[in-house]
Computed example of a mutant assay.
Amino acid sequence: MEEKFQHIYKEFENSPDTLGILSVRKKETQESFTDFFDVIVVVIVKMETQTNVKHYDCDGRSVALHLVTEKEIFHWMITGANRKVIEWVFKGRILFNRNEAVTSLRERLNNFHAVDQEQKIGVEFAKLIRYFEDGKSLYNGLNFLDAFHHFLRALQHLARLNIIEQGRYPEITVWEQVRDIEPETYKLYQELVLGEEPLEKRLELLMIAIEFAIRSNLKIGSVHLLTVMEKRTGSWTFEELAGQREVQEYIIDLEVVIAYLADHGVIEKFEKDSSTPGVSYLNYHLQER
């Protein structure tokens, strides 16, 4: 199979657009890690292409080839989307490494640049607030099973936040990582999932714990957005903030983050008169830090 397998990716080695090629082979205990293919081939290229996934049969073994760009990889790293591809890049066997491009990419993924880390923390913090606030509303409406789902998602983003604060990248097995990094978060997860108390009581206690965790992480979680707001003096409208390139990775949660920061005195919300009596524009500016 090996010689025929090489024919699948050899053509990409000759392209100047190719930065690196990796392979990941299926393990019996982790079939879903490779999407149930026997082999995954990841080809890292400079330019986007219309066809980014190809499927092959190679002597009875299934092979999936994925074409990805560095830009896509870093986007997924920041947003937490497509984490499986990030894992493939981390753990795959290097087949081709033009000018150490794959090695450099892994080093950057493994050791967050300050800007990458701040933005990634901002994304996870925004999702943490979103799922917590939605879960709290569901709990107050006595929708306990739906509240359970949202609080579990909030805990996952808290766990990822804990890992990133340590300068590490959250893996798919995030609870194994966080068990050693932040045992308190891991304990909250265990109590929610395995606790013997009635669900309503577990959720009630968890709400208090997550609220405390959010407030404890308020300073570091808001750094990225506040840095964006510091780009100029004076106030911002929401529309102006939402138009900033740096916040696009968490634009869907930006409103709830701004509302939370305003409610907790991190930023100030104030009204500006409009041309219609009784109607004002809402603006935001930084509190003194």
Rank of each mutant, 00 (worst) to 15 (best):
I86C: 15
E2T: 11
H149A: 08
D38Y: 06
R289P: 15
Q287W: 01
N52D: 09
L138Y: 05
P183Q: 13
K10E: 11
M77E: 09
P198F: 09
H75G: 01
I208V: 08
E240D: 10
L65I: 00
H224D: 14
P183N: 14
L95D: 07
S235P: 00
D38T: 01
V24P: 00
N111A: 06
R215Y: 12
I163L: 12
D17C: 13
K201V: 13
K120D: 08
V257H: 08
Q6V: 12
E11C: 03
H55W: 13
Q30F: 14
G195A: 04
P198S: 03
N52W: 01
R179K: 15
I172Q: 09
E246K: 14
S32P: 15
G221S: 11
E288R: 04
L155S: 04
E100H: 13
N14Q: 09
V85P: 01
I164G: 05
P277D: 02
F125T: 00
A159W: 07
K231I: 01
F12K: 14
I210M: 06
I121Y: 13
V89A: 08
L205D: 01
T49V: 09
V266S: 08
E100N: 12
F132Q: 12
V178C: 03
M229A: 11
T103V: 07
V228R: 05
P183F: 06
